[in-house]
Nucleic acid binder design. Structure first.
Length: 584
RNA sequence: GCGCCCGUAGCUCAGCUGGAUAGAGCAACGGCCUUCUAAGCCGUGGGUCGUAGGUUCGAGUCCUACCGGGCGCGCCA
């Protein structure tokens, strides 16, 4: 409908241009808004206000000139000039209700579009270090990333979902050492566990597995392990040098092969757990990209930057001159001990992404990584890749509340709330929905009690309930033995004439643009708010008017409208990863 | 100190990228089940959009400064 009005306006504007009233090069394209107030009609445009200056006329006068040149159209029943110069359009009922037939015909495809035009776009999200189970902070990134990816796919992008597995860093060595030390404890060795090691219960589980696989073959006495190891923090030493020394000792005592065995056992166990957790959350990936496979790419990327003259040596280390590309300070890519930095891996990784042919890349990061964006973009630019093709979205952490009290979390101590625990407590539907119901960059309070509640307070249930109610209407209809074909329903919509029905039809007609905007702005919350509104409007209608009335013409029309509402609720909820129960 | 994010009703948040009288939901109060699911609906009250300037026909939205909250500023990952 907006397109139709836009065409009419275009026609009028062109006429004014050829008459010399408006300049030929007028850039303004008419913006068509949905009106907030029904007294203003169904749609409104501010084009007369925007181009008044160029026409050197006052807005109302220009509006009148435009209206005089609007072609007649049977969908438009009335055009008014209002306020400072808005042009309001009133739409015919037949035109308003035609969306119902459109929805019933298109079904699951209603709302989808090809705005993306098949462009290749990658969404990389979660990418948590595989050093422990996912916690509730990762959950928000998972829900947001998965939803954004699905939204983009719905508007015609070719989307690839990727998890970057940090399987090469120091944290992984700490995990391997932690597993081995727990194993030694199981074997009967006694010592103080390093304060910087991973202490979660899951480490013990992996150690048990190790014991089963390897028996006592990997056992060394506590004395050999800890001799000459610098003191840990509680003993007045430094926790970092303590754990690093233990890692080195572990490698030395086990030898490369057995160390790798322990390392991979830990990595795979945790990765399996993460995969399983995310799959259970309805989050699926096309690619699990291993950092370890980047080894050659890192050297190549450093070489590339070297060739471009963007690197220099200082104090034994190799630096990237990122300040040339807008960063605050230069960054080390190779340390004085010869090892490349995490940043170097990331340079290589991002180059790799674009070499795989993605037109656009979206990274979803925790908000604490925001300071990292300028240097990654700087690296891309230095390598000749347009940094605007990378879009980094930050997700703020969610704070959990239970019984009005903040739920405390701390990762290292092992006392965190895992994503799995959250899913078990509130269910996947509520978790998926709640996580994306706020703007990603907004701090969020996650009320566990509300997510669990089965009442209208809980937006997930509220929306699902609207869906279930419509399914119930269908059951009633079928019980009565009445079968109505889709064609029959579509033909019946002329009988609609209530205000509530117009409101519903207006909302339904907005779905495609809500979806398009929600997707292209990477803001799933726009869709959740829309669905809440649609469900509410339906509940109002349902309470005020009976659908299954005696008079079959009206009955069929109302059924058609109800089914259309159900279809849009289903399409929206499905994109959000939320189920659509037919009974509740 | 520098950088990024945020500040809208008592609470949790929207506000369609500058439009008409700033909206929902909770919480408070009053109503609605012999009728397709009351997991629902209807009604009432509630605001100096952090503060002060600026840009213009028009600002919650844009620019500047300040106030308040969060995060980040490693040869960590």
């Amino acid at each position: 409908m907006k397109d139709k009005i836009s065409q009419l306006l275009e026609h009028a504007l062109n006429a004014l241009k050829s008459e010399g009233i408006l300049p030929e090069d007028l850039a303004a394209t008419p913006a068509i808004d949905n009106t907030k107030d029904k007294a203003h009609g169904d749609f409104a445009t501010n084009i007369a206000l925007v181009s008044a200056k160029a026409a050197r006329r006052n807005p109302r006068e220009l509006a009148q000139l435009i209206v005089d040149r609007l072609p007649a159209d049977k969908a438009v029943t009335q055009v008014e000039i209002a306020g400072p110069g808005f042009i309001n359009f009133f739409i015919s009922d037949a035109s308003s209700f035609s969306v119902i037939g459109d929805i019933l015909q298109k079904g699951d495809a209603f709302g989808k579009s090809n705005i993306g035009g098949g462009q290749h776009i990658q969404v990389e999200f979660v990418s948590a270090n595989p050093t422990g189970p996912l916690h509730v902070g990762h959950g928000r990134g998972a829900a947001y990333g998965a939803t954004v990816a699905d939204l983009l796919a719905a508007i015609g992008y070719d989307v690839q979902r990727e998890y970057y597995v940090n399987d090469a860093g120091r944290q992984m060595n700490i995990l391997a050492a932690s597993v081995w030390l727990r194993y030694l404890e199981l074997e009967g060795e006694r010592f103080t566990f390093p304060s910087n090691g991973y202490k979660g219960e899951y480490v013990l589980d992996i150690a048990r597995q190790l014991q089963q696989d390897a028996g006592n073959r990997l056992r060394h006495s506590a004395e050999t392990v800890f001799t000459d190891i610098p003191a840990d923090a509680p003993q007045g030493g430094d926790k970092e040098t303590h754990i690093d020394a233990l890692i080195e000792r572990c490698k030395k005592l086990l030898g490369a092969d057995d160390y790798r065995l322990v390392f991979d056992l830990g990595l795979n166990a945790i990765l399996d757990d993460i995969r399983d957790d995310l799959a259970g959350f309805g989050v699926h990936y096309q690619e699990w990209f291993s950092e370890r496979t980047l080894e050659n790419d890192v050297d190549a990327a450093i070489q590339l930057l070297q060739d471009k003259g963007c690197l220099y040596e200082k104090e034994g280390a190799l630096w990237f001159r990122s300040t040339d590309f807008g960063d605050d300070k230069d960054r080390v890519v190779r340390r004085d001990n010869g090892e490349t930095t995490y940043f170097a891996s990331d340079i290589a990784y991002h180059r790799n992404k674009f070499e795989r042919g993605f037109d656009r890349v979206i990274n979803i990061w925790g908000a604490d990584h925001h300071g990292y964006i300028p240097r990654v973009k700087a690296a891309l630019q230095a390598m000749g890749i347009d940094p605007d093709r990378l879009d980094v979205r930050l997700v703020q952490f969610a704070i959990l509340y239970r019984g009005g009290e903040r739920v405390q979390m701390s990762t290292r101590s092992g006392s965190f709330v895992t994503l799995r625990e959250l899913r078990e407590e509130v269910g996947n539907d509520a978790a998926r929905f709640f996580y994306v119901t706020r703007k990603a960059e907004q701090h969020m309070d996650f009320d566990l009690d509300l997510a669990k509640s089965e009442s209208k307070d809980n937006p997930v249930y509220y929306i699902q309930y609207a869906h279930a109610r419509i399914c119930s209407i269908q059951r009633k209809l079928e019980e009565a033995g009445d079968v109505v074909s889709t064609e029959q329903l579509i033909g019946a919509v002329d009988a609609l004439n209530l205000d509530e029905e117009r409101d519903l039809a207006g909302l339904l007609a907005r779905y495609p643009e809500v979806l398009a905007q929600s997707a292209s702005q990477l803001e799933p919350h726009q869709l959740t708010h829309y669905l809440r509104e649609l469900a509410g409007q339906f509940h109002t209608y349902y309470n005020a008017h009976k659908v299954l009335v005696e008079e079959s013409a009206i009955r069929d029309a109302r059924i058609a409208l109800s089914y259309a509402v159900r279809q849009v609720l289903k399409n929206g909820l499905t994109l959000l990863g939320v189920s659509t129960p037919s009974e509740m």
